[in-house]
Simulated scan of single mutants.
Amino acid sequence: MISIGDATLERATGSLTLTQFRALRVVVEHTPVTGTRVAADLGMNPSSVTRACDRLVTLGLLSRARNPSNRRETLLAPTAKGRQLAEQVNRDRRRVLAGILDRLDPDSRAAVVAAFALFTDAADGKD
């Protein structure tokens, strides 16, 4: 799973670290969002997230703006290019996983899909 994630990220971006891409994904999913929220979602130090987001802004994948309701906060939002990149990586990952599942016989495929559902529930804290 990790090698699939790494390979699809490398093909799509070539220049982003996993941390930078994870930050981009959080911003895409929760836009607009503060860097503090991104850091909390990733379980990372805010200064590390700030550096990752600085790089994403430089690459034109994120934009920053002052929060109109709290001028001390800066909001992050994906640019069209950033949103497209996140969507491309997600499509590539789904395509690769679908190809792997297609190579399994129907019973094995059903078992793997069921196991992934259980894994997802456990990761989300569901019983």
Rank of each mutant, 00 (worst) to 15 (best):
Asp127Asn: 09
Asn90Phe: 06
Lys81Asn: 10
Val26Ala: 08
Asp121Asn: 14
Val26Ser: 04
Ala23Gln: 01
Asp121Met: 14
Val96Tyr: 05
Leu42Gly: 07
Met1Tyr: 00
Gly5Pro: 01
Ile4Ala: 07
Glu10Thr: 11
Ala12Ser: 12
Asn45Gly: 12
Ala111Asn: 14
Ala86Trp: 00
Thr74Gly: 08
Arg93Lys: 01
Thr31Ser: 07
Arg51Cys: 03
Ser15Met: 13
Ser48Asp: 14
Gln20Phe: 15
Asn70Gln: 13
Leu62Gln: 13
Thr8Phe: 09
Leu16Ser: 10
Leu18Tyr: 12
Lys126Asp: 06
Leu104Glu: 00
Arg91Gly: 05
Ala122Gln: 06
Asp41His: 15
Thr79Phe: 00
Arg93Gly: 00
Asp102Phe: 01
Ala115Ser: 08
Ala114Val: 11
Leu75Ala: 08
Asp121Gly: 14
Leu97Trp: 09
Gly35Val: 09
Ser47Cys: 03
Val28Lys: 07
Asp92Thr: 03
Pro78Trp: 13
Arg103Pro: 00
Gln88Gly: 01
Arg22His: 12
Ala86Ile: 05
Ser48Arg: 15
Arg11His: 11
Leu59Asp: 10
Arg64Ser: 14
Pro68Cys: 04
Ala110Val: 10
Val27Asn: 05
Arg25Gly: 04
Ile4Thr: 08
Leu118Gly: 04
Phe116Gln: 01
Ala123Asn: 07
Gly125Ile: 11
Ala65Asn: 02
Val33Arg: 08
Asn67Pro: 03
Gly5Asp: 02
Leu56Pro: 00
Ser48Ile: 12
Asp41Met: 15
Leu76Asn: 15
Gly99Trp: 07
Leu118Trp: 07
Val38Gln: 04
Leu104Gln: 06
Ala40Phe: 09
Ile2Thr: 08
Ala39Phe: 10
Arg66Trp: 00
Asp54His: 07
Val38Gly: 02
Leu75Thr: 04
Val96Asn: 02
Gly14Arg: 03
Pro78Asn: 05
Gln88Ile: 00
Ala39Met: 08
Ser48Lys: 04
Arg103Gly: 06
Leu97Ser: 05
Gln84Gly: 04
Arg91Thr: 09
Val112His: 07
His30Tyr: 12
Leu9Pro: 02
Thr36Ile: 11
Ala111Ile: 06
Ile100Cys: 03
Gly5Phe: 11
Arg55Tyr: 10
Ala110His: 13
Thr17Cys: 04
Thr50Pro: 02
